[in-house]
Design a binder for these strands. Structure first.
Lengths: 220, 220
DNA sequence: GTCTATACTAGGATAGAC
DNA sequence: GTCTATCCTAGTATAGAC
């Protein structure tokens, strides 16, 4: 990892944990092992570092999803893997960031913050959600062809609903101490298939959530 | 409104729009019409103002929900009103705060931020979610007695899922520009009832979302 | 209860040597 | 590419008069 990458790496960690304003470049410099002023050789200002960090975060999640979804053909498996990998990614962010559980860190919360402060990020964030939406819609369409999923559902609406569901679960995990994501996860999947699964399909059985770690890029 | 209330009022508005760090007490003082130093006669420090603001925000939402749900007996109506009033509350926050649409403001996003910065808020936030969860669970239980809702569902899991759904929709509205909450809202309600509604119930029809403004406390 | 004046600090950013 | 030194500003907070 070169210095530039180290700066991004440490900054993203700090942004996720402390937020943009509470992340000091002095601390980042110390973590990287250089002096504060040296950061300005690599980046114009703090905002540029933030932009790069967000882009790096997005590409990391995308890779995680791709690794998890790639090669799978069955619609249920794809949708399940996608949901699982996003939740798992967020769930493990705190460990990846090197802090012990504490607060449930959330990638989309940081994106949302960035978006408000720096509207330029809109393109990147939209692009991220487009990717998820399209992956879901493809799976839904093929699932409707295979009779895994009822035809009555509009694929785009369903995709929106699934994304909202994931985001909501992650947000609630951060905010509501009585909400344990691992307890509701199975019922979340069950209810989704109960709703959209096609009864005419031969193998209608629900997925069982397997509590195995999914592969996450381990650069942290 | 006395000075203390004015300070809370203006602070909350600013916290919602700009976040904690980007809210300056100078600006708050100007909005209130006093000098910055005078704030410290009413509050020990910025943190205390934030605490009070969050508590005021929570009580405002609770009142909004209570106004909307109160007096209704039918489970579907109650659940529908609750979801609707939370979404509507968030949806209208920006107008209430006096800024023109811009970013979709979200009450729970501010709570989540506060929680991370000031763990003392945990009690208040948990209390808020407890209130929503209990309201939902009561409705679900009575709905299961009346055969409006299938008995197979665990009320607590269902409540969690509904809350997640709402939060997710609000977050996505803030972050994903292609996501229009008013377009997906009807399908969100439809899908919920398709899932949990009891077919044995006589009047099984779905709710139609009525795009009327719900009453929101108009102190702002 | 509100004001003026002022202390104090953190943190982003720049200049210029090596 | 990294360092030392320095600038600058914003923003919280306090002291004490009225």
């Amino acid at each position: 990892m070169n210095t530039r990458e180290k700066i991004i790496d440490s900054s993203l960690k700090n942004f996720l944990i402390f937020g943009y304003e509470n992340t000091s470049l002095l601390k980042v410099a110390e973590e990287v092992g250089i002096k504060k002023a040296s950061i300005y050789y690599h980046f114009r200002n703090k905002e540029e570092i933030f932009h790069e960090s967000i882009r790096y975060l997005i590409s990391t999640i995308k890779n995680t999803i791709e690794d998890s979804v790639g090669g799978k053909s069955n619609a249920k498996t794809i949708i399940h893997s996608l949901m699982n990998s996003i939740i798992e990614f967020n769930f493990h962010l705190s460990h990846m960031a090197g802090i012990e559980k504490s607060h449930f860190l959330s990638a989309s919360r940081l994106m949302e913050y960035g978006l408000r402060e720096f509207p330029d990020l809109k393109k990147d964030v939209d692009n991220y959600y487009d990717y998820i939406k399209n992956t879901l819609m493809d799976a839904i369409h093929s699932g409707q062809k295979n009779k895994e999923i009822k035809k009555e559902f509009n694929a785009e609406m369903l995709a929106f609903e699934i994304i909202s569901k994931i985001e909501g679960f992650c947000l609630l995990s951060s905010s509501y101490s009585k909400f344990n994501i691992n307890i509701v996860r199975q019922s979340m999947y069950d209810n989704l298939w109960k709703l959209i699964g096609d009864e005419n399909s031969g193998k209608r059985g629900f997925f069982k959530y397997k509590a195995k770690s999914i592969p996450i890029s381990t650069r942290w």
